[in-house]
Design a protein around this nucleic acid. Sequence first.
DNA 1: ACCTGAACACCGTTCAAGT
DNA 2: ACCTGAACACCGTTCAAGT
Lengths: 217, 217
Amino acid sequence: MTYDVGMATETRAPLTRERIIEAAVALADRNGVAGLSMRKLGAELGVEAMSLYNHITDKEDILDGMIDQVFQSIPLPDLELDWRDAIRQGGIGAVEAFTAHPWVLEVLGSRGSTRPAALAFMERALAILSRAGFSDADTHHAWQLIASLTIGYAFQQITSPGTANFDAATFGAWLVREGERHPSIVRLAPLIVECAFDQEYEFGLDVIIDGLEARLP
Amino acid sequence: MTYDVGMATETRAPLTRERIIEAAVALADRNGVAGLSMRKLGAELGVEAMSLYNHITDKEDILDGMIDQVFQSIPLPDLELDWRDAIRQGGIGAVEAFTAHPWVLEVLGSRGSTRPAALAFMERALAILSRAGFSDADTHHAWQLIASLTIGYAFQQITSPGTANFDAATFGAWLVREGERHPSIVRLAPLIVECAFDQEYEFGLDVIIDGLEARLP
DNA sequence: ACCTGAACACCGTTCAAGT
DNA sequence: ACCTGAACACCGTTCAAGT
């Protein structure tokens, strides 16, 4: 949709809402949302912070756009697929998007999203469940359950050992001081540290899918 | 643990780490974490912002303390209970704490917690599952599953319609514009808006507990 | 030992002024 | 129409100075 004359576009492409949001996502991926400021974002785009306000209304507007872009990046599962496969595909795509952009749940937690991409994703999930034969009430239960599981696993993953959000020093000190009184954590520590979240998610999703299937008429 | 002479303690009790964190929780409950600043927190305690640094090291230190206080407020389920009841009790307590302090997941999402109360809660959950007869590997799977579900439901609840995080105006405008193309959302809207999250959580938890039980030796 | 005022390097945002 | 510099009201944090 953008014209590209094929030269020198990297030095000064025209500023647009889209370019601003793309740059904001890239900056947040690198530095976290806490490191995303209007001034830094401007610098990233070769412009003063104040110029951004010609294309967006607010920093909040940027955050909403960033969330929407992440949801847009999740492939919508095919309606023709078996519902179990479709749900698995959608869920795995969502977890991938949420963990690829570890700031997104943090931002979502303080704003939610009523933007088009998030709602389109929800629409697809509800449609898949309805077509599978669930009643409206059960479709709603199933959506809440699957969405919660998906958000929860992604949340666990972005704060797990090995990520920037995990404070290994504090945990190590605690382990030395309190290990004796917390034998289960000590015993399971290797499993916790080497947790393969993708497999955990699929394990959990299968438990849920089996449980839901039993409710189909 | 604190002496109380029974008079005038409300005007100028001695500043302590504990009092600072309590005031910070109260302030965040009222205004969200975004509205929690060192200057406002000082004012709340009748003191300049800089005085706080005599008792805490950082704003981050305060945030860690706040998270820990929320986890401390969750009753640890009794080890002697049937494991299903114990898990239900712990999970429901966690959801209550996370929704009573809607900022806590937001903060947790950017920091995790390796503090005593969160770890003590995890220890109890692992111990309950181990005593129920799960192998170490299954105890770990079950923990990840239950913790994810719990965090996810609380997350959904704090961003649901009717909360401060839900942008009803944007949603309404979208509905008018896009409703036609999103029939499932339109049809299920009443269920979504009037969602009873407590019941949803217990529904989901039961699906999971049943699924896990089938794996017991 | 604890509190404070002034200061520093940052924020988001407005607005008049430039082109 | 878009960009900018200066300014405003905020941030977290440091540090020398007070008691």
